[in-house]
Amino acid sequence: MLYEYLSSQKHISWNSSLPGVKICQFHLQGCSQDKRLKLSVLSNTHHFEAFFCSGGQLIVESTSTCPVILQSQGIFLLSDESKLCSIQISQDLQGVLIAVNPSAAQSSLSSICHILGLKLDIHAIRKKITNQNGYAILTDIPWAKALFEDLRRLPPDHREGYCVFKTVELLYLFCANTSTAGVLSETSSNAYPSLSISQVRAYLESHLEEKHTIPSLCHRFSLSPTSLKTGFRRMYGQPLHRWLTQQRIHRACELLRQSNLPILTVAQAVGYDSASQFSVVFKRYCGMTPGQFKKMSDSGDPSLF
């Protein structure tokens, strides 16, 4: 869980002023690369976490659902008995993490609720989160947007306390079966990883010269093959391999028009090992060979522009 990982980071300090609750405000600056955390059930922990993400992103991988991305201005509730298998955290991740021990925190959090005229059963909430795959993600609703807008205005030394207060409110809403709780449940189990798909497209556009396979892309972006192929078709209207070929041929046309590079060099610049393989694909899409295209381009044939 996030608590275990952040506790191992020496530069991160924790606030334990509230019994049963540990709080830290952090920014993972200076990390050389993204981290993938393998999660396992720790029988002696018995806690859950609320993470308020103000920068960077998490990629959440479950054993039963498609990967889901939590990005800036999102909230992540995680039980120690979740069905998650890993969490990938970006090197610039930042926010506030609240780690709650239900037994130790019941009295202190209930006291806060008593002041507000509310009742809060921490054990019941933990059980409910566990029954819903053990985690929930809250993004893109007015409640969350207002929270992060308030958080942005607050002085840094007030943000931890504010997040504790909002955690209590969030847990109450989650336990009360309100519409907000419904959004939590729906987001955690059914959200489509559209951000990951757009990241795949951006990555391919800037790496046309490289070899790409479905398994390698799935590994890089923490997607299942079905999520990647189905998601790409839904977002961009065609299979990934067809879109990638079109992008390569489009880039090849630009190079042929704007440079004097040899055909083989152009082919390699867009991901083909040989000029012959490149020529076959190019002719299929453009109706002529790369050499013919280059000759017509040099002559200023307006049909190419």
Rank of each mutant, 00 (worst) to 15 (best):
residue 3 Y to H: 12
residue 5 Y to D: 07
residue 9 Q to H: 11
residue 11 H to K: 00
residue 17 S to A: 13
residue 17 S to G: 13
residue 23 I to P: 15
residue 25 Q to V: 08
residue 26 F to K: 04
residue 29 Q to G: 14
residue 30 G to A: 06
residue 30 G to Q: 04
residue 39 L to C: 04
residue 41 V to M: 06
residue 42 L to A: 03
residue 45 T to H: 08
residue 53 C to W: 00
residue 54 S to W: 02
residue 55 G to I: 00
residue 60 V to F: 04
residue 63 T to Q: 12
residue 64 S to W: 00
residue 70 L to Y: 01
residue 70 L to K: 00
residue 71 Q to M: 10
residue 73 Q to N: 15
residue 74 G to T: 02
residue 77 L to D: 11
residue 78 L to N: 14
residue 83 K to N: 04
residue 86 S to A: 12
residue 95 G to W: 04
residue 97 L to W: 02
residue 98 I to Y: 02
residue 98 I to M: 09
residue 101 N to D: 14
residue 101 N to T: 09
residue 102 P to L: 06
residue 109 L to V: 06
residue 110 S to V: 05
residue 114 H to S: 15
residue 115 I to E: 15
residue 117 G to S: 09
residue 121 D to G: 12
residue 123 H to D: 10
residue 125 I to N: 05
residue 126 R to V: 04
residue 128 K to G: 09
residue 132 Q to K: 11
residue 132 Q to P: 01
residue 135 Y to N: 15
residue 142 P to R: 08
residue 142 P to L: 04
residue 145 K to Y: 00
residue 145 K to R: 05
residue 148 F to V: 02
residue 148 F to H: 09
residue 150 D to P: 01
residue 152 R to E: 08
residue 153 R to S: 14
residue 153 R to K: 14
residue 155 P to V: 10
residue 156 P to R: 00
residue 167 T to P: 09
residue 167 T to F: 04
residue 168 V to R: 06
residue 172 Y to G: 00
residue 173 L to D: 07
residue 174 F to T: 01
residue 174 F to S: 01
residue 175 C to W: 07
residue 177 N to M: 02
residue 177 N to T: 00
residue 179 S to A: 02
residue 180 T to H: 01
residue 184 L to Q: 10
residue 187 T to G: 08
residue 202 A to P: 03
residue 206 S to Y: 03
residue 209 E to G: 02
residue 209 E to A: 14
residue 210 E to S: 11
residue 212 H to M: 01
residue 212 H to Y: 09
residue 214 I to V: 13
residue 216 S to W: 10
residue 216 S to A: 15
residue 218 C to F: 03
residue 218 C to K: 14
residue 223 L to Q: 05
residue 227 S to I: 00
residue 227 S to Y: 04
residue 228 L to E: 06
residue 230 T to R: 10
residue 237 G to M: 13
residue 239 P to H: 13
residue 241 H to I: 14
residue 245 T to R: 07
residue 246 Q to H: 13
residue 246 Q to E: 15
residue 249 I to K: 10
residue 256 L to W: 12
residue 260 N to P: 04
residue 261 L to F: 11
residue 268 Q to L: 01
residue 268 Q to C: 04
residue 273 D to K: 09
residue 275 A to F: 08
residue 278 F to E: 02
residue 278 F to H: 07
residue 289 T to V: 03
residue 289 T to A: 08
residue 290 P to M: 08
residue 290 P to Q: 08
residue 290 P to A: 01
residue 293 F to K: 04
residue 298 D to R: 12
residue 302 P to A: 07
residue 303 S to W: 09
residue 303 S to Y: 07
residue 304 L to Q: 05
residue 305 F to H: 06
